[in-house]
Amino acid sequence: MSKVDGKVDGKVDIEISEVGPRDGLQSIATVMPTEDKKRWIAALASAGLQEIEVGSFVPPKLLPQLADTAEIVRYAIGIGGLRVAVLVPNLRGASDALAAGAHKLTIPLSVSETHSLKNLRKTHTQVLEEVRGIRALLDALPPDQRPQLEGSLSTCFGCTLEGPVSEDAVVRLGGQLLDAGCDEIGLSDTTGYGNPVQVRRVLRKVWNALGRDSLNGIHLHNTRGQGLANVLAAVEEGVTTVDASMGGIGGCPFAPGASGNIVTEDLVFLLEAMGYRTGVDFERLLSARAVLAAALPGEPLYGFLPEAGLPRGFELAGERAAEPV
């Protein structure tokens, strides 16, 4: 099969949404210079990552690491073929994201209300009201200018602050996000509590109640070493988009002990080795990691694939005839 811009025929079975420039950078003390962010994002896109969450529209005093998000969005939308995603906590953030030109907006709603109050300083009712306001804002635009609106159900597998989280509440709040105007919802293991059996069960409950089109993506952490096992469970159930962070940087600064994003490099290898096309070029991916390492000197980067390298004779999924198992 032919390669197009580093991708095999440009087709993917599982899309990896790179969240390092947002979820990764927000959780480390170092503030990456804006020009380094641009170089990193360009390198990630060159490697074949088609969706990158480039920042968050929150007050700079809360997350100075992301104070340049508007400039980063304006730069990233100029990269051909890249879907530029951002996190927005409220209507004000959504307005700023629209002005910058983002393609996708994600608003988080923590199933754990304790975490919601800590993270957004809002109750469930208040977050849903923000979603309605954002929906009205988007509906005022011509249809072809409306970015995608995703509601992310945070702490849906457990919460460091509250402990176990009701799976019925996950389904109920997911339905309320859709009713309030989200185009789709996503599941987020904010605190790294999830296990593969739980992931399968929650996915099935959501799909059975809200329909298969309601949910396509999942955001998993490797805090307790379950990240890739949970990915396998999610993909086998039918999830088609998985979030990951280059070098495994990041986590949630408002959930104690919740560091540990899935390592993008290891995730790409897992999926490609199983026969799923990701559209990612390994050589360019490791070049992007080098850009990140140079921009964050002294910051630990994680991952087994970058250390061990590819097995001898390894081929991308699209270059061989084997079907996903």
Results as ranks from 00 to 15, higher is better:
Ala102Ile: 09
Gln65Ser: 08
Ile52Val: 12
Leu63Pro: 06
Ala94Trp: 06
Ser27Thr: 13
Glu53Ile: 02
Ala76Ile: 04
Leu25Val: 07
Ile28Glu: 09
Asp36Asn: 13
Ser56Thr: 07
Asp36Val: 05
Ile79Lys: 11
Thr69Arg: 00
Trp40Asn: 03
Ala47Ser: 15
Leu62Trp: 15
Leu44Lys: 05
Ala99Lys: 10
Val73Ile: 10
Ala70Asp: 13
Arg92Trp: 00
Thr69Asp: 01
Lys37Val: 11
Gly81Pro: 09
Val84Asp: 05
Pro60His: 03
Pro64Met: 14
Pro33Ser: 06
Val58Lys: 02
Gly78Leu: 07
Gly24Leu: 05
Val86Met: 03
Lys61Arg: 09
Gln50Thr: 14
Ala76Asp: 04
Asn90Pro: 08
Tyr75His: 14
Val54Ala: 13
Trp40Cys: 09
Ile79Met: 13
Leu62Gly: 11
Pro89Cys: 05
Gln50Leu: 11
Val73Gln: 05
Ala43Pro: 04
Ala67Met: 01
Leu62Ser: 14
Glu71Met: 09
Thr30Asp: 02
Leu25Pro: 05
Lys38Cys: 06
Gly24Arg: 08
Leu49Asp: 04
Ala29Gln: 12
Ile79His: 14
Leu98Cys: 12
Lys38Trp: 06
Leu87Met: 00
Leu98Pro: 11
Asn90Gly: 08
Ile41Glu: 02
Ala85Val: 09
Gly93Glu: 11
Leu63Tyr: 11
